[in-house]
Design a protein around this nucleic acid. Structure first.
Length: 472
RNA sequence: GGUGGGGUGGCCGAGAGGCGAGGCAACGGACUGCAAAUCCGUGCACACGGGUUCGAAUCCCGUUCCCACCUCCA
């Protein structure tokens, strides 16, 4: 089975063939840093993190670019309301996004360019569009420059819409536009706008319009033609439609595949800033540990709607615990010395599922079946079967970024040295308890278990002796 | 009005003509000194009405309900 992805532009699942053999160029929309991240932002980044990891684990060399749009109307408005510099506000939220991404194990992109750092590239693109007859300076004195949608007959093709069928925009201000759907490439500086949000241009001082930054930056770092462009479904129109139009009208091949992740809903309604029914990553992380949050957000297919409701995280936690319990037990059995080096494997059914437009739910089915087989082997003392299952579980969870043995998910702040010390002390207790159990001294055995429990340590008896873990 | 995506067991969530994915929860059993964990088993699942077919959750026709986008959105 070959690797296939759903492409929004053709509305079909197509075989994925990269433009350059062995290499993949991926651009996905990051945030317009005008507020705290909510779960929807994180889900999107996670979806493209899953994609990146799968491409990497399939042997591709992946270059990932994710933008930070650090200048736009809302940023300016909010900063003015807060009485703080717009660039300070943007940077503050940029860091909040970085923290949220990092806590969930989302790999850093190869590069993360900011819109404000690419004004010259935007000017070059505007100039090309004007030259080719697809953009024009506003017909009034605003200093705006607009993209001329009527001049580009493919306009609407990404979302399969016809300009004339679109609901008439109740655009309050059609000033200087040839068509109300024309969108701003450049916004002339207005009185009252901060001086720090003002850049000189051949069409007058001003700042970039939304959409333009992505076209300019993707071209700079990935070229005029690249493999995959991603983002949330709600960005398809107008953002991606406009991006595609302005880039292709400039003569660029642009994205070969368009991939869009589904929305996160809160009990059936889309989470959105305007409605206010959002959940912070921070709030979720108070309800569950990071690995569980990652598992939860990543367990549905990336194109499906993910509906959050209270209890979702508890269920995910149970599933994660099951995988983790097996991994720990298998590890203790296979590599008692605690130092292990392994090369994870990827079962064929798992690869088939992931290759098929990243069918993570089906892939998780394979993972759980492997865990069950592993538990059976563990109970039966079949070491070869156990090792096969263990290596497969490691390989699959690594590919998905949810390996519970990965040190990055380790709870608390305990250092390696502290954990080793703790292990020695607890093992001494467990040895005393084992002695008591041989003597059928259940009172003493239970006393030790309760002592450890009171200290936050869970004890579990297995065929090969007792093991311990910190309570969750 | 236009464009797209949906309705699957108590819940989540894949599948897309034929052995009931998987997880969570529930119940029964096995194992265990007791726990925990684990394993095995149980459940008339496919919005509704027709049709095609030896066979339909899956294909066709009709109905219905929900969601997203149509210039703030991940």
């Amino acid at each position: 089975m070959t690797l296939r992805f759903h492409d929004s532009a053709t509305a079909a699942i197509r075989d994925f063939v990269p433009l350059k053999e062995g290499q993949v160029s991926l651009y996905y929309c990051g945030a317009t840093v005008q507020g705290e991240p909510h779960i929807g932002h994180v889900r999107s980044a996670l979806a493209f993190d899953q994609l990146t990891r799968w491409l990497q684990s399939s042997g591709y060399d992946v270059t990932v670019v994710r933008n930070v749009t650090d200048i736009d109307d809302k940023i300016l408005v909010k900063a003015a309301e807060n009485n703080e510099p717009w660039w300070g506000l943007a940077y503050r939220f940029e860091q909040a996004f970085a923290t949220a991404y990092e806590s969930l194990g989302i790999q850093k992109p190869t590069y993360e360019p900011r819109a404000t750092g690419h004004i010259p590239e935007m000017h070059a693109l505007i100039a090309t569009l004007i030259e080719r007859g697809h953009a024009y300076p506003a017909l009034d004195d605003s200093g705006d420059v607009y993209f001329d949608v009527r001049s580009w007959k493919q306009y609407g093709s990404l979302t399969h819409q016809n300009i004339d069928d679109m609901q008439a925009a109740p655009d309050a201000d059609p000033r200087g536009k040839r068509d109300p759907r024309d969108f701003a490439l450049w916004k002339g500086h207005k009185q009252g706008d901060p001086e720090t949000a003002r850049w000189e241009s051949p069409w007058g001082a001003g700042r970039p319009g939304w959409h333009l930054e992505c076209s300019a930056m993707v071209t700079k770092y990935l070229g005029t033609e690249f493999d995959i462009h991603g983002g949330g479904l709600d960005l398809r129109f107008p953002h991606h439609e406009n991006e595609m139009a302005q880039s292709q009208a400039a003569g660029h091949g642009f994205a070969n595949f368009w991939m869009h992740n589904g929305m996160v809903t809160y009990q059936g309604e889309k989470m959105s800033k305007s409605i206010g029914n959002t959940i912070n990553p921070r709030e979720m992380l108070e309800l569950a540990r990071p690995l569980v949050v990652r598992y939860y957000l990543g367990q549905a297919h990336y194109r499906s709607v993910l509906d959050y409701r209270p209890g979702s995280l508890t269920e995910a936690a149970a599933a994660v615990d099951r995988i983790e319990t097996f991994a720990k037990a298998a590890l203790a059995q296979l590599f008692p010395g605690n130092d292990f080096g392994y090369i994870g494997t990827r079962p064929e059914a798992f690869v088939r599922a992931m290759d098929d437009d990243l069918n993570v739910p089906a892939a998780l089915g394979v993972l759980h079946e492997t865990v069950r087989a592993g538990n059976t082997a563990l109970a039966a003392g079949e070491k070869d079967a156990l090792q096969d299952a263990f290596l497969a579980v490691m390989g699959m969870t690594d590919a998905l970024g949810i390996n519970p043995m990965d040190p990055k998910w380790r709870q608390g702040s305990g250092s390696e040295a502290e954990l080793t010390a703790l292990d020695v002390l607890i093992k001494a207790q467990l040895e005393a308890r084992a002695q008591a159990r041989t003597e059928k001294n259940w009172a003493e055995s239970d006393r030790i278990r309760e002592l450890l429990a009171a200290a936050g340590v869970d004890v579990a008896d297995t065929a090969n002796g007792a093991t311990w873990s910190l309570k969750k």
